[in-house]
């Protein structure tokens, strides 16, 4: 199945990747090629076959409902690109006029 460059642009937005025009062009060719190779799946008769999401028949793994120490705040923030010592700092997601 071929994929168009506009499909690739749409998927890049879904995947949150700011790709250049050159990258879009390359990926359009590469993804079309890979999808061409895996197209064989479309031709398999798998009517009525149950899908497998997970290889083992594991059931819910329960533990006692007991509070245990988690990651300390300082440790959780240690790799943050920007923090104020108590929280991650991110660009504003509302403009001042939008605040209620």
């Amino acid at each position: 199945m071929a994929i168009s460059s506009s499909d690739v642009r749409h998927v890049a937005l879904l995947a949150r990747l700011a790709l250049t025009d050159a990258q879009i062009e390359t990926l359009t060719a590469e993804l079309s090629s890979v999808l061409g190779h895996i197209d064989e799946l479309q031709h398999l008769d798998l009517e009525g076959v149950q899908p497998t999401a997970h290889p083992l028949a594991v059931t819910n793994a329960m533990r006692a409902d007991v509070v245990v120490p988690g990651l300390e705040r300082a440790e959780a923030l240690r790799n943050a690109p920007d923090s104020d010592g108590t929280a991650f700092v991110v660009p504003s997601i509302t403009s001042p006029g939008e605040e209620s």
Binding site: L17, A76, A80, P81, V90, P91, S92, I93
Partner: peptide, 20 residues
């Protein structure tokens, strides 16, 4: 996503730009 760890792009215009 550039928020909690890992590379963060410089001078993002907004959060979407930061992610992308």
């Amino acid at each position: 996503d550039g928020i909690r760890y890992g590379h963060r792009a410089a001078d993002p215009a907004d959060v979407l730009d930061l992610y992308m």
